[in-house]
Design a protein around this nucleic acid. Sequence first.
DNA 1: TATTCATTTCTTATGAATTATTATTGACCC
DNA 2: GGGTCAATAATAATTCATAAGAAATGAATA
Lengths: 237, 237
Amino acid sequence: METLSIYPGRGIHGQVVEAIGRRIVSGKEAPGSTLDLDALEITYDVSKTVVREALKVLAAKGLVDARPKRGTFVRSRSQWSLLDPDLLRWQFEEPSGSGLLDDLYEVRIIVEPAGARLAALRRTEEEVESLAAALAAVDEQADAEAIIEADLAFHRQLLEASHNELLIRMEYIIEIGLRARDVLVHTEGHRDDFLPPHQAVLDAVRRADPDGAERAMRQLLEQAAKDEQQIKNRGGK
Amino acid sequence: METLSIYPGRGIHGQVVEAIGRRIVSGKEAPGSTLDLDALEITYDVSKTVVREALKVLAAKGLVDARPKRGTFVRSRSQWSLLDPDLLRWQFEEPSGSGLLDDLYEVRIIVEPAGARLAALRRTEEEVESLAAALAAVDEQADAEAIIEADLAFHRQLLEASHNELLIRMEYIIEIGLRARDVLVHTEGHRDDFLPPHQAVLDAVRRADPDGAERAMRQLLEQAAKDEQQIKNRGGK
DNA sequence: TATTCATTTCTTATGAATTATTATTGACCC
DNA sequence: GGGTCAATAATAATTCATAAGAAATGAATA
């Protein structure tokens, strides 16, 4: 799986971007507060250049705004480019990011069934085959993490078959959130529950049945939500 | 209306970001090709600092990737952060961006009815009132551009009432696309067609009727699509 | 009230030192 | 002789230190 993130921890610059970015996202730097460039320089033990390039990147993500005389200050949350992959990752990895995760589930149940519908209408034969292969690959995985990745790959390929670039990107966003969550739905016990709904989606897509694909995907997600709720309740006791 | 864009043309830096960004988005810089930093320095008549800060920003948007020894090169389109507000604006303002606009309409008819449903479930009394005010404001506008802005404001406020942060951001994206398109649906003749469907959405939201809100929004969008198609056909002849 | 002016802070600039990655080379086993 | 591996050199980005420039604010002044 290729990540969309640009900073694989390589170089000092990326680390500073991520450190400051996470501080802002987590609320440690309050919106409206001004950032002290000299202080950052000392805190992260880097030169002005690095600090200011990092702030430029954060400005590109809408997190900060630099104005002459007024200083560089943190923008309010509503101004952030919340759909930026890095920003999403930082958010979801925050302990307080569960609210956004709920939002994500809602978006998922809106987007994915619609995507399945379009996929059923537009998929090529090759895409049906690779979808089938992706589904088969889930069964071959051993550990939970690999299963999750394979599952995500299936959903990603399905949305790609919708041939709608914006939907595909939204699926990437959904992936980031699902990957960041701690709850692992795919335990051994649930493997039997997993395959049939996915197979149903695949079948509908294969026979180019938009209504069926949409319905099957909705059922799949509702079932998954139910399973997860069960696990959460069990774990919460 | 506040833009999410970070570069209001202020400063040389932003201009270089936009210039190079647009070249890449438009395909003038082929994916995989390496960018010559010295050449850019000369082309835009700025120093190394500006060029490299601009490239850092573009890297944050996933457009380029800089590697020691290999150079700075353009990433493939699939790696771009397509949902970035700036990137979307550049795309939509390209003549060749009509494919993405079609995608956008599809997303809109997926997201907005679902958003209307959630809004009906969660809106506060204050939100109903400001929605009503937003709709009333549309009627007061004189020129086409102002009407469009007022219309967008209505849709934006509706999605905000869904209280789902991700949906709200998607609406921002939709806005960017709609604002960039050249076709102006809201000509004088269509004003009568405009109000009733919007009123229907508002009424459903007011009486907390999710099914009604979803249906009304879907009808609104389908009607709008039909109108636009008509205009396009008329203009095309 | 309007204008000027000094201050503050970001912005741009420059060039050199540093670091990281890759390609090359040569040595060493198979 | 062919292939793998490690040391090396070349290359380009990265980082750094410093300084001059531009812009906005707010106070002092007319």
